[in-house]
Every structure is written in structure tokens, then in C-alpha cells.
């Protein structure tokens, strides 16, 4: 009987203790999920940018995780090479810029792969992600054929020997750079030769000497990511940068001439007579000092 009693109480204690520990662990180890996102982009000077965002929460409560360390590595022949680690800013974002001439190791299908790792901390779970991309180059050339302005865009890849291989069926957006955004003029897929050509309209405004910046963009392609390429050409209309502030007008800085002249005439007429009257009274006074 006594042993039974001791057995029962100890099991009870053990159960309670385990429950407490388990609940404590559960409370202490309840970590939130994080999401690691990455984007590949190639910008106009051929540099590549990997943008990384680390988020936590869901729905309307998504917010960035600041000051988190993200480890980047790439694959070279199945070997993982550590690249670097990046720290997120206050919005949970960070980026890595890759210089244009850096050659990424590629796998058999021609993709380059970068993996990202976040190790988590006491309150946040670890997360990882992977992006893969292929390189694509764009050449823009300008030509005037029969006084029609032509733009020819060539999308190609450079193979190991240095040959240019055209890439077809890639959608290119061609536009001009404006102050707040880019005005896209045409959207076309490259043909078999990797070429899109466009007739440039005559009524696009440029700057004060007629320069425009042409922008060619591939938008969030599966393989090639986002690629932007720009080129300047003097095909825009000239805009007058020296237009003078309003000439004489009702709402301008300077009043219309007729207004100034009328006011002067009216005021001088009135004041002339006023001064005349004053002179008469002063003359009257002088008479007094003469008599007495």
C-alpha cells in the first residue's frame, strides 16, 4: 500500500513537472514564422542587384525584421561557396550589388543560383530561399532610315567562347524616361533573331537640347529577372528651359503699363490741385505777416 502511494505521488509530481516544463518550453520557444524574399535585377550599367527582404507576421501585420543577418552563398559545381552576409535595415531590407564583369558560376542549364539563409533567433524561426537567374544582354542601336527614326534592340547571351547568341520570345518594354516614371511606347517579344525594332515617334519631348533617355526593360521574367538598359539619343523635341516669368499681366509680378500710367495720371491730378490749395493758404498767411 505504502509503495503504491509513493509510486502514485511521484508519478503525479513527475507529470506535473513535465507539464510545467513542456508549457514553459512551449511559451519560451513559440517562435514566429519569417519569410525571406529575394529579387534579381540587372540595372542600366550592367551591374546586378540582389534585393532581399526579411518579413515576419502575416496578413495586415507584415513587417520587416531589422538588423537581421542574412547569409548569401552560391553554387559552383554543386559546391556551396559562401559569398557574404548582409544586415537588414529598419525596414527589413538589404541588397547586394554585383559588379558587371563578375562572372557567376553556372550550372548545366545555364542558371546561376544564389541561396539565402536566415538563422533565426529566440523569437523568430529560421528561413531560407533560393533564386536562380540567367544572364541576358541588351544592345540598343539607333538608325534613321528614309527620315524615319528606328530603334533596334538586340537581346543576346554570351556563351563561353564569346559568341553572341540571340534570345527569342522575350518580352521587351521600350519607353522614354520621364521625370516621375518611364513612358512606355511599345511592348514586343523578340523575334528569332532576338531583335525588336520600333519606329520612334517625332513628338516626344526631350530636355533643353533635345536629348531623351531611351529605356528598354524586361519585367520580372522567369529566367532573366528584371533587366533595364538605357541609352541617350538626341531625338527629342527641344523644351524651352528659359521661359521668362510672366510678362506684364494682372497676375504677374509687374503691372500692365496702362494701369501704371492711369494711376500716375489720376494721382498727380488730384495731388496737384491739393498742393495748389495749400499754397493758396500759405500765401494767405504771408499776407498777414505783411500787414501786422
Amino acid at each position: 500500500m505504502k509503495t503504491n502511494y509513493i509510486l502514485n505521488t511521484t508519478t503525479l509530481f513527475l507529470c506535473v513537472f513535465c507539464c510545467l516544463v513542456a508549457s514553459y518550453n512551449a511559451v519560451a520557444q513559440k517562435k514566429s514564422k519569417t519569410r525571406l524574399k529575394a529579387y534579381y535585377e540587372k540595372i542600366s550599367n550592367d551591374d546586378k542587384v540582389i534585393s532581399v527582404i526579411l518579413n515576419k507576421g502575416s496578413g495586415l501585420q507584415i513587417e520587416g525584421v531589422p538588423n537581421a543577418e542574412i547569409f548569401l552563398s552560391m553554387y559552383d559545381n554543386e559546391k556551396e561557396i559562401e559569398l557574404t552576409s548582409l544586415f537588414t535595415d529598419s525596414n527589413g531590407e538589404t541588397k547586394l550589388i554585383i559588379e558587371a564583369n563578375y562572372v557567376f558560376p553556372k550550372d548545366e542549364s545555364g542558371y546561376s543560383v544564389i541561396t539565402l539563409n536566415y538563422n533565426g533567433n529566440d523569437s523568430l524561426k529560421a528561413s531560407k530561399n533560393k533564386i536562380k537567374f540567367k544572364d541576358l544582354n541588351i544592345d540598343i542601336s539607333f538608325d534613321i532610315v528614309d527620315s524615319v527614326k528606328q530603334i533596334v534592340v538586340y537581346a543576346f547571351n554570351i556563351d563561353s567562347i564569346g559568341n553572341k547568341l540571340p534570345i527569342n520570345e522575350v518580352e521587351l518594354h521600350i519607353g522614354v524616361e520621364r521625370l516621375f516614371s518611364t513612358l512606355y511606347l511599345q511592348k514586343n517579344e523578340t523575334d528569332d533573331k532576338g531583335i525588336v525594332s520600333m519606329e520612334f515617334p517625332n513628338d516626344i519631348a526631350g530636355d533643353s537640347i533635345g536629348n531623351i533617355t531611351l529605356i528598354v526593360k524586361i519585367d520580372d521574367h522567369r529566367d532573366y529577372g528584371t533587366i533595364t538598359k538605357s541609352a541617350k539619343i538626341n531625338w527629342g523635341m527641344i523644351v524651352d528651359y528659359n521661359s521668362k516669368s510672366n510678362a506684364r499681366s494682372l497676375f504677374g509680378d509687374e503691372a500692365p503699363l496702362w494701369m501704371i500710367i492711369s494711376v500716375i495720371i489720376i494721382l498727380s491730378g488730384a495731388w496737384y490741385h491739393f498742393i495748389l490749395a495749400i499754397f493758396k493758404v500759405l500765401k494767405m498767411r504771408r499776407i498777414d505777416s505783411g500787414i501786422i
Binding site: A270, H273, F274, L276, A277, I278, K280, V281, K283, M284, R285, I287, D288, S289, I291, I292
Partner: peptide, 27 residues
């Protein structure tokens, strides 16, 4: 202002008053 009601003074003052009345109206 030295007014002694002498005819010359009266004339001058009346002229001044007439001028002032004349410009006050359009003003």
C-alpha cells in the same frame, strides 16, 4: 494761421476751399 479777415486773405482762402471741395468730390 494768421487769418485776419482781410479781403485778399478771404479770397485766397475761399479759392482754396473751392479747389478742395472740387477735388474731394471725384476723389
Amino acid at each position: 494761421f494768421g487769418y485776419q479777415d482781410i479781403p485778399e486773405q478771404r479770397k485766397l482762402l475761399n479759392q482754396a476751399l473751392d479747389i478742395m471741395a472740387a477735388i474731394i468730390i471725384p476723389t
